[in-house]
Design a protein around this nucleic acid. Sequence first.
DNA 1: TTGTTAATGAAAGCCATTTTCATTAAGGAG
DNA 2: CTCCTTAATGAAAATGGCTTTCATTAACAA
Lengths: 157, 157
Amino acid sequence: MPRGKCCGQRWWQGKLQGCGYRVTAGREAILDILSKSAGHLSAEDIYLKIHARDANVGLTTIYRTLDVLSDVGMVSKLDFGDGRARYELAEGPQGARHHHHLVCTACNKVIDYTDFIEEEVELLKQTEKGLEKKYDFHITGHVIQFYGLCRACSEGK
Amino acid sequence: MPRGKCCGQRWWQGKLQGCGYRVTAGREAILDILSKSAGHLSAEDIYLKIHARDANVGLTTIYRTLDVLSDVGMVSKLDFGDGRARYELAEGPQGARHHHHLVCTACNKVIDYTDFIEEEVELLKQTEKGLEKKYDFHITGHVIQFYGLCRACSEGK
DNA sequence: TTGTTAATGAAAGCCATTTTCATTAAGGAG
DNA sequence: CTCCTTAATGAAAATGGCTTTCATTAACAA
Ligand SMILES: [Mn+2]
Ligand SMILES: [Mn+2]
Ligand SMILES: [Zn+2]
Ligand SMILES: [Zn+2]
């Protein structure tokens, strides 16, 4: 019987080690925070949460870890145009369905939506196929985001 | 009979003055460069082109002017994820149909495409309508971009 | 021509992210 | 378990796109 947190919490070990990365306390802490948060955290958000909770993890390590996690596909790096990158867990075992974002340009609130995703994904697939052929491109990803004003910001004039 | 460059070159005067902005040499130079370039220029690109051509326009003025031009809707500010904003003339009298972008993540080449735009725009319209209703949002804009590897970068392994 | 005020440029500042480099520790070999 | 190689880490400094400040210039209305 293994010591430490028992199975179930560490579904990421395999993925990290499989890609040649070591499993460290800092990486576990960052993944834990990401998996327990609503998403769209900046590097500094994570830094603050980590220090509020317990450990000493430098901001530098947070940036480096987020790069690693993006690299192995466990985390998505997002840009909502407010000058700082944000991160969320990519679709994994237990969570995170594929979704797109609706961003309030006034208060920076971000809404995940999965509505209309089927039609969007369908069109995207076709468009990607067409673009790949016509422009001889190998497409690896896309960004779709809507910008606007949320209720509160719209009323606040 | 007016002095200076004669009519035809200055379709932007009206728009600027109509919005309460003054027409200055720097603004003309920037617009001229934008209208004669392939597009997707960074502030520094413009700065270098302006100095290669003739005049003394500070980088600060270029940033400020691009803000003004975005404000009046003459220029679109683009973000391809390479850490610097890029700009292109928005659809105006003579040029620039509505298009989306295909970006090579290796060499940063950007392709404008108008194919599939009709279907995309149609779907976007519907999606926006649905999102506005469901999330009580007033949508003002969207971003659609595809990322991948161009032929050259794909072959170069 | 003149006065008001927006526009400008040089220099300093800002701030998210990256780099440097000396120190620590993950994890395979034995 | 102990050693050893080398990836990982953190503090501090650097980077770089962009913004702010402030004294000077020039658009343009009167
Ligand atoms: Mn999300
Ligand atoms: Mn374009
Ligand atoms: Zn809002
Ligand atoms: Zn390329």
